[in-house]
Structure formats: C-alpha cells, structure tokens
Computed example of a mutant assay.
Amino acid sequence: MSEKGQDQAKIHIKEQVLTYDDYATINDGNRYELAGGKLELMSPAPSVTHQLLSIEMIKKFTQSCESDYIILDAPIDVILASTEVRQPDLVLVHRNRINILSKRGVEGPPDLVVEILSPSTRKRDKIDKLKTYSYYGIPEYWIVDPAIFVLEQFILQNERYELINIFQDSEIITSPNIPCISFTMAEILNKIPPSLI
C-alpha cells in the first residue's frame, strides 16, 4: 500500500464510530467509556478518598433505599445507546424498572446517577456527562466534589438539567424523585480518615 493509502486507512480507522459490541471486545487492562462512538480512557484509578466516599454513599443508600432500589457501583456499564456507554460511580434503578438490568449492564436510563469528581474527570463529569445524561433522559444526576465535600443535585426539567440544590455539611440530602434518600455530607465526611481529607 502506498504511503498516501496508509494515511487514508489511518484516517478511516480514527473516524470509525464504535458500538457497544466493539467496546465489549476491548480487553487491554484499561477502563473506557464510549461517548458518541469514541473511546474515552478512564484513568488513573480513583483515589482512596474517592473510593471511601463511594462506599459510604452506598451504605447510606442501602440503609434507606435497598427495598425499593437496586444500587450499583462502578465499574458498571450504563448502555444508553449502541454508541453511548458510560460508567457512573453510583447508579440507582427502581425495582419496578428491573427490566433495564441485563448481564451486560444497565440498558437504559437509571433513576439516579452519581459521579464523584476526580482531577482527571472534572471537566467530563461537569460538562460532557451533564449533557449526555440529560439527553438520554436520566431524571436525576448528582455531582459530588470530594475536595470540598459538596453535592450538586441536578433534576431533569424540560429535557435539560436544572441545578436545584447544593448540599453540604449537615444539610439533609433529599430527592424529589427518590423519597427514601436522607443523609448528610457531614455523616459521610465523618467516616473518612482525616489524613485523607
């Protein structure tokens, strides 16, 4: 193949839109998301603080919501379309919608997705995923900032997210969509060793 032909082949490969089936065959030791048919590398691994925050939130969800909701944590594929596969940190799916769960992952919009910010994911979580999750009709999206222990709550209204609350300290976190939720960021913070804050 000529040099020009090789360059054209490379361009074709780069422009190829990947689907879930392509994504599912990748086994190189890395974690990816599929955004608009393009792979996005998820690295480096989350920090210990990030992981502890996630674990403590799972405990809170489990205490009050487990009878009504399936609670899942990363890595879990949320398959929103054949070319859109995301891996939120936490996912809640109401048990009356259990039909969207499959062996592959969550196939459709969950009731709640939670992203815990990392330096490498801040822009993706606050801009790209905000647009993606609203486009695919996820009714509620939380962004948790472990640097300041604040939770931003977005609710889908007229096909767009509205920031309806910012929870911090001892404010009780509630949800207009998920009545079983009730905890505070202070309760979470108290479970994390001071050396990691």
Rank of each mutant, 00 (worst) to 15 (best):
E107S: 06
A81M: 07
I100E: 04
Y23W: 09
S47R: 00
N158T: 10
K123E: 15
K4A: 15
V91I: 15
E66T: 10
L34P: 03
T132N: 06
L18G: 11
C65M: 08
I11Q: 09
N158G: 08
I26T: 05
R160D: 14
L196H: 03
L41C: 03
G36P: 01
R122W: 05
R104C: 00
S47L: 00
I98R: 14
L80Y: 03
L156K: 02
P109C: 05
V78T: 13
L117N: 04
I197M: 14
K126A: 08
D77Y: 04
R124W: 02
L72T: 03
L163H: 04
V150F: 02
K59H: 12
L151E: 08
S134Q: 11
K103G: 14
K59V: 15
W142L: 06
T25Y: 02
L101P: 09
L80M: 10
I143L: 13
P176F: 09
R86M: 11
L117E: 00
I26Y: 07
V85D: 03
I13M: 14
D73E: 11
N158H: 11
D28V: 04
G36M: 04
I143G: 08
E40V: 15
P139Y: 07
I192G: 04
V48N: 11
K14M: 14
P139T: 10
S67R: 15
Q51R: 05
V17Y: 08
V113L: 10
R104D: 13
P110S: 10
Q16A: 15
S54K: 05
I11V: 12
S170Q: 13
V78K: 04
A81V: 06
L53F: 13
P119S: 03
P110Y: 10
D73P: 00
G29A: 03
D128C: 00
D28I: 01
Q51T: 11
Y69K: 01
S2M: 04
A9S: 12
H94F: 07
K10I: 12
P194G: 05
R95E: 03
K126V: 06
E3K: 12
Q153S: 10
C65G: 00
L92S: 05
T19F: 11
A24L: 12
T174N: 10
M185E: 06
R97G: 07
G29I: 01
W142A: 06
T184F: 09
G5A: 15
I155W: 06
A45T: 12
D145G: 02
I98A: 14
E107C: 12
I138G: 01
E140S: 09
V78H: 02
D22R: 04
L112Q: 06
T132I: 14
E84G: 01
I178K: 04
